[in-house]
Amino acid sequence: MNQRENHAKGGPADRLSAPAGAFHLMGRFGDQLVPAIFLIALVITLSLVSPNFLSVGNFLDIARVVSIIGIMAVGMTIVILTGGIDLSVGSTFALASVVAASLIPGSFSDAPRILAFVLPVPFAILAGLLVGAAVGFINGFIIAKSRVEPFIVTLATMAFVRGLTYLFTGGFPTIFRPMPPLFEWFGQGYVLGLPTPTIFFALVVLIGVWITRRTTFGRSIYAIGGNEEASRLSGIKVQSIKIRAYTLMGALAALSGIILASRVGAAQPTAGLTYELDVIAGVVIGGTSLLGGRGSIMSTVLGVFILGVISNGLNIAGVPTYYQYVVKGLLLISAVGFDSYLRKMQRI
């Protein structure tokens, strides 16, 4: 629709002149300006409303809480940039965490063991990550080869993988008696005063930014999301790139799941239910387009923090959970609605 309109627009001379004012700024910093302003306004408002909000401790807390969703959101951004979506992340999250947990020495569950051995902690974690990557690979493989919509494929694997998780655990949580220190550190430790989940999140973000901005893989992701056929005709290996994107997503979902298992001291087969929606919400609030080809990892970080700050603020203000649902949903709609409105004015 937009292409049509743009095609008709004015003379070449006019087109060369720079757009004016706010629009120019927006064009420059593109996707990040609106969510950034929104986040800053939110922080200022909450600091004025509640004195408890503005403290280092509280900010660290927010950073820790958003890490779980944030790590997945980095992967989801990459998937959405290709024009896809992954609804199976919540299930992958659970499967990877129960597999990793069951392999960790000292793990215990009421159900009969499926895997009758344990591994040193790093290898157990690695096994969990591989399980996640495998689920992602299967998603990517089906999507790339069958051309069925990603929404449907991952909706199916969401159910399927959740089923596998129940099958693996018999429906019982895996707990630790006791938890090995290294695994405890994985989700509960601190490095230089920062919680380990936050450290992992930061690392994942850095790698994600590097991938999307500085690698041929990242460039191909944007190209495929922007125009798949043109990319194919330019020699981009579309199928392979898609498979890699979903595999990465799966591994990151697994990483999140394992971190949470360590944090809460148990791997639940029901873990991560409906997380896919939180993750997607974070990505789109940041301003990444579900159509693909437009958005960035940094926008997603902002989006995830917006959600985290709102939750935190509402908690501090003592707003009951149910009202928080309402506020969060309205904020999601209005943040994205405002962005759509601006774009409509600007006619990108």
Binding site: L277, A281, Y322, Y323, Q324, Y325, V326, V327, K328, G329, L330, L331, L332, I333, V336
Partner: peptide, 8 residues
């Protein structure tokens, strides 16, 4: 978004 709002 509406899903969350309505559930609330």
């Amino acid at each position: 978004g509406m899903m969350t709002v309505v559930r609330g």
